Amino acid sequence: MSSNALVQLALTATGYSQKELSLKLGVSPTQVSKWKKGDYISFEMEGRLRELAQIGDLDPDVVVSAGSLEAAKKWQRLIAFLANFALEGAETGYTTVPLQDELDLLIGATVSILKEIGAPIPPAYPRDIDLNFDDAWEDEATDCALLDAIEANPYSRTILAIFRALNDVYGFYAAYLCELFDREELGLMETPAENIEPGLIELAATKVDVDKDFAPHFGRFRAKIRADYEKWICLVKDKAFQAGVPLRAELLNLVYDSSDALSHKAEAESLGFNAGRIHPDIYMNELLVGMRVIHQVLPAILKKLGIDEEFKLDPSELSLGDFPRPEDD
Rank of each mutant, 00 (worst) to 15 (best):
A53I: 02
I55Q: 00
F85G: 01
I225L: 11
W232L: 08
Y256T: 13
L247H: 05
E310Y: 04
S3D: 04
Y176Q: 04
E179N: 08
A13Y: 04
P98G: 01
M291P: 00
D314K: 07
V63S: 00
S68D: 07
I113V: 14
F172K: 04
L99C: 12
K24W: 03
A119C: 08
L78V: 03
F241V: 10
P122K: 06
Q54D: 10
A149W: 03
W75Y: 14
F221C: 00
A136M: 09
R157G: 01
Y16T: 04
H295C: 08
G321I: 09
E286K: 07
L147G: 05
R277Q: 11
I201P: 02
E286A: 06
K312P: 04
V255S: 11
L188M: 03
Q296D: 09
K207C: 01
I117N: 01
G171M: 06
I233S: 02
I278F: 15
P122E: 06
S156V: 01
G199P: 00
L105H: 03
S316D: 14
E327D: 14
P60N: 12
C234T: 05
G306C: 09
I121S: 04
R226V: 13
Q54T: 08
H264E: 14
F311A: 13
A227P: 06
A227N: 10
K303C: 06
D139K: 12
S17R: 15
L166Q: 15
L23H: 14
F133D: 03
Q31I: 07
S17C: 10
L21Q: 02
T92I: 06
L52P: 04
D57H: 08
E185L: 12
Q31A: 03
K207F: 00
P154A: 10
K34E: 10
L131W: 05
R127N: 15
V111M: 06
C178T: 01
N285C: 02
A10N: 01
D39F: 13
L103R: 09
G67H: 08
R183S: 04
A205L: 12
G47F: 09
A53S: 09
A145K: 13
P154N: 07
A249L: 00
F214L: 13
T206I: 13
I150Y: 11
E202D: 15
G89P: 00
G306M: 09
S65E: 04
D101I: 09
N195K: 10
Y170P: 00
A161G: 02
A141Y: 10
L23Q: 15
A13G: 04
D314P: 03
K207M: 04
N167D: 05
Y16W: 08
L271A: 09
R277T: 07
G306R: 08
L271P: 03
R50H: 02
A83T: 11
K34V: 06
V297G: 08
E185N: 14
N167T: 01
V32E: 02
K239E: 05
P123Y: 07
I201T: 09
H295L: 10
R127F: 13
A141R: 14
T30L: 03
V111N: 03
